[in-house]
Computed example of a mutant assay.
Amino acid sequence: MRRKKIYEGKAKVLFEGPEPGTLVQYFKDDATAFNNQKHGLIAGKGVLNNRISEYLMQKLEEIGIPTHFVRRLNMREQLIREVEIIPLEVIVRNVAAGSISKRLGIEEGTILPRAIVEYCLKDDALGDPMVTEEHIAAFGWASPQDLDEILQLTLRINDFLNGLFLGIGLKLVDFKLEFGRLWEDDQMRIVLADEISPDSCRLWDVATSEKMDKDRFRRDLGNVEEAYQEVARRLGVLPEAGPVDIKPPRVMQ
Results as ranks from 00 to 15, higher is better:
D186P: 01
P20Y: 02
R189I: 04
Q187I: 11
V24K: 00
S53F: 01
L221V: 03
L104R: 13
I150M: 05
A33Q: 01
E108P: 15
A43G: 08
R233I: 02
L56G: 05
Q229P: 04
L192V: 05
R219E: 01
V92Q: 03
E210V: 03
S143Y: 07
R114I: 03
N50H: 04
G64Q: 11
A115S: 14
I100M: 15
D128E: 13
A11E: 02
A193L: 02
I42M: 08
L121M: 14
E108N: 09
D199C: 11
D148V: 03
V117D: 02
F69S: 13
A241P: 04
E149N: 10
V90L: 03
I246L: 15
R103M: 14
Q187C: 05
K38N: 04
D146T: 03
D30F: 10
L170K: 11
P87S: 07
L153S: 03
V131T: 09
I168E: 10
R156L: 09
D185E: 15
N223A: 09
M57Q: 14
I52V: 15
P129M: 07
S209I: 00
L164C: 09
T154R: 01
Q253M: 10
F15E: 08
L41W: 08
I116H: 09
D159K: 11
S99K: 01
G222E: 12
D146F: 02
I100T: 15
V173P: 09
L147Y: 02
G98L: 10
R3V: 09
G242Y: 00
P18L: 11
P20L: 08
G21I: 09
P20A: 12
L126T: 05
V90C: 02
P144R: 02
D245C: 04
A97D: 15
M212H: 10
I106K: 09
G21H: 10
D148G: 05
A137G: 05
A137E: 07
I196D: 14
K28A: 10
D146H: 14
G21C: 08
T208C: 06
N50P: 04
N223G: 04
L112Y: 10
E62R: 11
P249T: 00
K214W: 00
E118Q: 13
K28M: 13
L166G: 03
A241N: 15
A31T: 11
I136R: 01
